[in-house]
Nucleic acid binder design. Structure first.
Length: 720
DNA sequence: TCTGCCGTCTCATGT
DNA sequence: AGACGGCAGA
């Protein structure tokens, strides 16, 4: 495509960003301002005016975003030359190529949370520290925070003073040694080690800068220190770094993201050009007005206009429901209505702060026969059977991967119990040899006479898998594992059917990988891709289903109709068990992100009662709801009486049980088959349905389930 | 050594 | 409410 055509239909600021050639560029892009368009067009424009596509690197937040970006660039006639990926994928690739400089083996494993806990337990054991005083999770959290700031164990020790922190420094150090022994990295290491690679090897850094002459980083407001160093490191001389983002959409501080990166870009890169994209092409004025009013309550931000380009739309609805079941039923019924009026399910999304909210929503959508998909890409790879199959391949690819070894040495059961495993591990730690090597020679392990045959047979199995894994097809390797590992036999029952189906799904995924990597594919490459899947990656656009996801996952997406459920104090802003409130400004940004995903209709809902960890709790509405403007926002309460409290203009859909007991209210007279006449004191939803507190003249107050108790209403005029 | 049951703990958010 | 770890019994 010619450069002129690439500029067609772009606004002035968009053009400015696309045409800016050399030197740092900050694109402050409000929601719906055509940011993706700018990035893709800029890449294409550079590719035909400044350099070849192979010299352009685009870094996105999720694999899905990277894929779409690549797709759109291909549509602009760019072909597949531009590198589009996430920071993590880019770093993994870098570390594979320069593994020696990074102090890693070529086939290093990427450890997930569970694997990390295993490595941490080993580290704690080596230091003779009880895992009671130092729980693996807490220590891993502290280490992760340190890594996010690019802090090494030595620096960590130098910076802290307390006894506990010094211990954590020791653990940090030992934990890294354990990972290295197992030829493994954790998620944070991908970034940290890549950043260090750039920092410590100038010649390598130069080579990379020459390869990637123009770097574009999307969602820059959510980069952490390591990511910042990587981005800067790639552009040290040329300074051709273009970052796009919106400080108002920074929602990952808890993961180490530093909003300061984007706020200080101009000081960081004094030559930086700044382009503001403030026109919104996505949402109605009502949606934008509400979101804009909300976000002005934040102090730490760059003030930016939100200018509408769309015509008038519907008001933003705020709906207060009785409990979470009523809330879910309400959302489901509204979606049904939307579909009945000719709308498509794929245009609808429901967002929430915590995954626990999917339970009630799923139930209601199921009841209403609304097709839905949940953005939980990682969940699939966390299933036991999937992890088991993958562990075989991991161990085959990386014979030092002890996490994988421990997982499958006795799955299926081969008579290799705890004691034998301990002996094998002791031998591994003693000799420093890869576990697969140790296994192949069981005679060298003291006290394993009885288990020798089983160990040898397992080693033989792993040899076969290694051979299969070296073949050209990943799919064949996965099938080899399922055929020869003996896992299939363990999936016999009714739940085993699910397992079998899931593993077939995994085989399909491997086949798809084979198709996409006719050249250069490998089991290691596939395992890496699988380790770096994100939740939204699971979303299929053409599925014709409503999308359910967390507010965090919603970043970067847009839908015609959006529901945000559970806008309550304690949930949004979120509050932990100890009543500690999460950073309110970030929580506000989170709701801002959710609201600005909506193109035409936006509904925020909350419940007066909600089951939290099995117990019913009284809830209050979110402070954020009070920050919305009057204009363009319509509030309704779905009361148990079945009408909107303020005579709401909308059809109110009640959950079935609430309708049934709609005439029950405080003060109502009832007759119980056993206790006689009584008066209702309160009605509450609890697990298993509605409950009432009733005071009986004969035997005092009782708590009764309306569904089961032999109660009947008594009309007042029935009594003389 | 394996299986099943029960008690405890945890629900943020995710690459 | 659900997951996971520990423990007891086969």
């Amino acid at each position: 495509m010619s450069p002129e055509r690439l500029l067609e239909g772009l606004t002035q600021p968009q053009r400015e960003a696309v045409m800016h050639r050399d030197g740092p560029l900050l694109v402050l892009a409000g929601p719906g301002s055509g940011k993706t368009r700018v990035i893709t067009h800029r890449a294409a424009y550079l590719a035909c005016t400044a350099t070849g596509p192979e010299h352009i690197l685009t870094i996105t937040f999720t694999n899905k975003a990277a894929g779409e970006m690549a797709e759109r660039m291909a549509g602009l006639g760019l072909g597949r030359g531009v590198t589009c990926c996430t920071f993590h994928a880019f770093c993994a690739r870098l570390l594979r190529i320069y593994h020696e400089q990074a102090g890693l083996g070529a086939n290093f494993s990427i450890y997930d949370d569970g694997d990390q806990v295993g490595a941490m337990r080993e580290a704690l054991a080596r230091l003779d520290l009880s895992s009671e005083n130092f729980t693996p999770g807490a220590v891993l959290g502290a280490i992760s925070r340190a890594k996010n700031e690019m802090c090494t164990p030595a620096e960590f020790r130098a910076q802290r003073q307390g006894w506990q922190d010094r211990k954590i420094a020791d653990i940090f150090d030992t934990y890294q040694k354990v990972l290295t022994e197992q030829n493994a990295v954790d998620f944070d290491d991908l970034l940290v080690k890549a950043a260090m690679l750039l920092g410590e090897h100038p010649e390598l850094r130069e080579r990379l800068e020459d390869r990637y002459r123009y770097v574009l980083v999307d969602e820059y407001q959510d980069t952490n220190r390591a990511q910042y160093l990587i981005a800067r490191g790639l552009c040290l001389e040329r300074g051709n770094l273009c970052v796009t983002g919106d400080p108002d959409q920074s929602i990952y501080a808890w993961r180490g993201a530093d909003i300061g990166n984007i706020l200080a870009f101009e000081e960081d890169f004094p030559a930086a050009r700044v382009v503001r994209l403030e026109e919104n092409y996505r949402s109605t004025p009502q949606i934008l007005g509400a979101a804009g009013a909300l976000i002005t309550h934040n102090r730490r931000r760059k003030v930016k206009a939100l200018l509408t380009t769309k015509g008038d739309g519907r008001a933003v609805w705020v709906v207060e429901c009785e409990d979470e079941r009523a809330e879910a039923a309400y959302i489901a019924s509204q979606i049904v209505q939307h579909a009945e009026q000719g709308g498509s399910y794929r245009d609808v999304a429901v967002f929430y702060r915590v995954n626990a909210l999917t339970r009630s929503l799923e139930g209601a959508l199921l009841d209403a026969r609304v097709p839905y998909q949940i953005a939980r890409g990682v969940a699939f790879y966390q299933r036991k059977e999937i992890k088991d199959v993958l562990a075989y391949l991991r161990l085959a690819a990386n014979p030092q991967d002890l996490a994988a070894f421990k997982r499958i040495i006795n799955v299926p059961a081969r008579g290799l119990g705890k004691v034998t495993v301990e002996r094998v591990l002791a031998r591994v730690y003693e000799t420093g040899r890869p576990v697969l090597q140790v296994l192949a020679d069981p005679d060298s392990i003291p006290g394993t006479k009885k288990a020798g045959a089983a160990l040898r047979s397992f080693a033989g199995l792993m040899c076969g898998i290694r051979r299969a894994a070296e073949g050209p097809s990943v799919k064949d390797a996965v099938e080899y594992v399922t055929r020869h590992s003996g896992l299939i036999a363990t999936w016999d029952g009714d739940s085993g059917n699910d397992a079998l189906e899931n593993v077939n799904e995994l085989i399909n995924a491997a086949a798809e990988y084979d198709r996409q990597h006719v050249e250069g594919g490998s089991v290691t490459g596939w395992l890496e891709q699988v380790s770096l899947v994100s939740d939204v990656d699971a979303i299929e656009e053409g599925a014709g289903a409503v999308t359910l996801m967390t507010l965090h996952a919603a970043k970067g997406l847009e839908f015609d109709v959006v529901y945000v459920a559970g806008v309550e104090h304690g949930l949004l802003p979120h509050e932990r068990g100890n009543k500690e409130l999460a950073d309110v400004e970030e929580e506000r940004r989170l709701l801002f992100v959710g609201m600005t995903r909506a193109r035409r209709e936006l509904t925020l809902s909350c419940a007066r009662w909600r089951a939290v960890k099995g117990r019913f709790e009284r809830r209050t509405t979110s402070l954020f709801l009070t920050e919305l403007p009057r204009e363009g926002v319509e509030r309704t309460t779905l009361s148990a009486e079945g009408t909107g409290a303020d005579g709401g203009p909308r059809e109110v859909v009640m959950p079935p049980e609430a309708v049934e007991y709609a005439s029950w209210r405080k003060g109502q007279l009832v007759r119980h088959a056993e206790y006689g006449l009584g008066r209702v004191q309160w009605i509450q939803p609890r697990t298993g349905g509605l409950y009432a507190g009733v005071t009986f003249s004969d035997c005092g107050q009782k708590t009764l389930a309306l569904k089961h108790a032999p109660l009947e209403l008594v009309d007042t005029d029935e009594l003389d």
